[in-house]
């Protein structure tokens, strides 16, 4: 890496290109669904965005649970045949997931990128940010992503297919997903911001969707990656992370105990990246493979991003020094500081 180009900057460029491609990319890959790359992307690119180049895997799962599996169990058909589309979706998801592992979050996801942009706006406005959430809160929030995955992506759609709950719950995660609102708005379509008055169920879901999006906008200015922490895609990734080829490895040294810079740098507040001293594999369930912990590790090769066994990026004292300096300068420049300086100058 040169003095100017660092891993975070490179990642932002990749995220920007991925955002443009996934939100507007039908112009490149063709308009129709069949022109899309997979229809089972391991990141929240949205099927409701009519210009998207590919869409996330959570929507086919919900529809298959509702329209296929649930209905077939109800009507007494061939269950294996009904499960086949879900298995194809899972297979397609895994084929892509194995290549980048959880880096789909840190490098590709439009909603992940948007939350980083919010964070950047908050920082540039000079807002007093909460750099790390309290440990207790982080631990309490972690199970939610699993609950959302199991309940909203699989459980309720299945029950809707079985007829046990209303059809409103046929795709409940999509009904509240912030990426649906973000990507459609980004494509110039405001039709996804609505309150649905057709039934109590739809009303509650549409209300939650808008409140959640508003909350994400507000919290994103102060806290890093607020939605990611409860995202069902993060849970789906976590379930399969051991098969992914990109790895995060650690070779702990005694100095680690007094340091902890990696955990401070982590946008997901994974403190275990600091405290784990035995295990070599430190790709934890909440990791998005953003690589910040590696960038901000001051000790040689303690943390590494690897592609199977091939090192992609290693902690390095010289890089750390440059990176820390650049970060300090970057954080100093914000609107509030500029305004104070201007007023100070005028006085």
């Amino acid at each position: 890496m040169t003095d100017r180009l660092n891993l975070s900057l490179l990642r932002k460029l990749v995220q920007l290109l991925a955002f443009l491609f996934l939100v507007y990319g039908s112009a490149i890959v063709g308009f129709y669904t069949a022109d899309k790359i997979s229809g089972a992307l391991p990141a929240l690119a949205c099927a409701y965005d009519q210009q998207t180049a590919d869409y996330c895997t959570l929507i086919p799962f919900q529809h298959q649970m509702d329209h296929r599996v649930g209905m077939v169990i109800n009507a007494g058909g061939d269950l294996l045949k009904a499960l086949l589309p879900s298995l194809i979706t899972l297979g397609t998801f895994l084929l892509m997931f194995v290549v980048l592992n959880k880096a789909f979050c840190g490098w590709i996801c439009p909603l992940g990128f948007f939350q980083e942009v919010l964070s950047l706006i908050g920082q540039k406005l000079g807002l007093r940010r909460i750099e790390s959430l309290p440990e207790g809160l982080v631990l309490r929030v972690r199970p939610f992503k699993w609950v959302i995955l199991l309940l909203l992506v699989f459980g309720l759609p299945l029950l809707a297919g079985l007829g046990s709950v209303g059809h409103e719950l046929g795709s409940p995660y999509c009904s509240i997903c912030p990426s649906r609102i973000l990507t459609t708005l980004a494509a110039g379509d405001t039709s996804q911001v609505y309150l649905d008055t057709s039934s109590d169920g739809y009303f509650v879901l549409s209300l939650i969707a808008n409140l959640l999006f508003g909350l994400m906008l507000a919290w994103g200015l102060f806290v890093r990656q607020p939605f990611c922490r409860i995202c069902p895609m993060l849970a789906l990734h976590a379930a399969f992370r051991s098969i992914g080829l990109v790895r995060l490895v650690k070779q702990g040294k005694p100095r680690c105990e007094k340091c902890g810079l990696c955990a401070k740098a982590c946008p997901m507040d994974i403190r275990e990246i600091h405290t784990e001293m035995e295990q070599r594999d430190v790709l934890f369930a909440d990791c998005t493979l953003c690589g910040r912990c590696v960038e901000f590790c001051p000790d040689k090769e303690v943390l590494q991003l690897k592609y199977v066994t091939l090192p992609l990026f290693k902690a390095d004292p010289a890089y750390f020094k440059r990176r820390k300096q650049a970060q300090g300068q970057w954080e100093k420049r914000n609107l509030l500081a500029w305004w104070r300086k201007r007023r100070g100058g005028a006085a």
């Binding site: 039709s191 609505y194 649905d196 008055t197 549409s206 808008n210 409140l211 959640l212 909350l215 994400m216």
Partner: peptide, 19 residues
């Protein structure tokens, strides 16, 4: 049966509540 205004107001409510 969908209110765009209601949607924007709920979104704003979420934002203000978040702050």
């Amino acid at each position: 049966w969908r209110s765009a205004l209601g949607g924007w107001l709920a979104l704003l409510g979420g934002f203000v509540g978040g702050l």
